[in-house]
């Protein structure tokens, strides 16, 4: 299929980009295009103008900012998963990014594009949410910080305002003693996850001190498994962890679709959370 017509601008500066997006409410930012282009080709989206962010060097790269890592929105998945900084300071982002789509798509698809698209079935939103990332956006009015918990508003809807561009995200460094895992459950390697669980676990002396859990595709936005997180505090590996994970589906509202019904997704959330926690805690 063939996209409908649109205008195209390739701004040379962030200000120009903000202006282009602000001046036309049907304009849309083009990052890597790996979600947008299929939508255009199927004529499921009709933007008036695409604002190509592909030539703005200030949007790319991974930066060490002391207590956090800043990942530029236009950094490709491929760059993120290979970044030694991301691998050492926020490994959950690196190992999850390596599960996104396939190598060719990861060469084009971007970290920020995936977040701004706000698809609850995408892998990275749950990770950024679990890690309490902070998204940084910019418009003509200036920069604004949006906690991940407030960024994902609804299905395919983020907190970005018209004329606002996502600059990237701050991912807090969790420090020593943490283990990580992303448990992705999909029918084929190419298929979107039916459910995914991103877990970060701090463990000492055979029990879990702290856990962060993000759930993929368990509602219209990525979700934290807060009940499990609380129940895991001080839980010993084994039955206590297993019991804690039984609460993984609390507060979720998964949809039913071609690939799974809500009750099965809830069941998977419990099983996969347990697996993610055990793996993150280094307890196979």
């Amino acid at each position: 299929m063939i996209p409908a017509t649109f205008d195209y601008v390739r701004p040379g500066s962030l200000d120009e980009a903000c202006q282009a997006l602000a001046s036309d409410e049907d304009a849309k930012a083009l990052a890597g295009g790996q979600s947008l282009l299929p939508l255009l080709r199927l004529r499921l989206a009709y933007p008036s103008t695409l604002v190509d962010l592909g030539r703005l060097p200030e949007l790319t790269g991974v930066h060490d900012r002391g207590d956090h890592v800043f990942i530029g929105a236009m950094t490709t998945h491929d760059e993120v998963m290979r970044s030694s900084l991301v691998n050492s300071a926020c490994p959950l982002v690196a190992l999850t990014t390596a599960t996104v789509a396939d190598p060719a798509v990861r060469h084009r698809g971007t970290f920020g594009g995936s977040l701004a698209h706000a698809d609850p079935a995408a892998d990275l939103p749950a990770v950024v949410l679990a890690l309490d990332g902070v998204l940084v956006a910019r418009s003509a009015e200036g920069e604004r910080e949006i906690p991940a918990a407030e960024f994902f508003v609804d299905y395919l809807e983020s907190a970005l305002r018209p004329g606002e561009i996502l600059l990237g995200a701050r991912i807090p460094k969790l420090g020593d003693g943490w283990g990580y895992h992303y448990e992705k459950f999909h029918r084929t390697a190419q298929a979107w996850p039916i459910v995914g669980v991103a877990a970060a676990v701090r463990r000492s002396n055979g029990s879990i001190q702290e856990a962060r859990i993000g759930l993929t595709n368990m509602g219209p936005t990525p979700l934290r498994a807060r009940a499990v997180e609380s129940a895991l505090q001080g839980a010993e590996l084994g039955d206590q962890v297993r019991q804690a994970c039984e609460q993984a589906a609390e507060g979720t509202s998964p949809s039913g679709d071609l690939h799974a019904q809500p009750d099965y997704r809830r069941h998977l959330a419990r099983v996969l959370t347990h697996r993610a926690i055990r793996t993150a805690a280094g307890s196979p």
Binding site: M1, Y8, L30, G33, Q34, L37, P38, R41, L42, L50, D78, D102, P103, A104, V105, H107, R108, Q190
Partner: peptide, 23 residues
Amino acid sequence: DTSNCGACTVMLDGKTVKSCSVL
């Protein structure tokens, strides 16, 4: 038309891309 099949894969600046999903 959904970048699943990969038949259109080419190298763009030395890395694979699906040329149906690049303008």
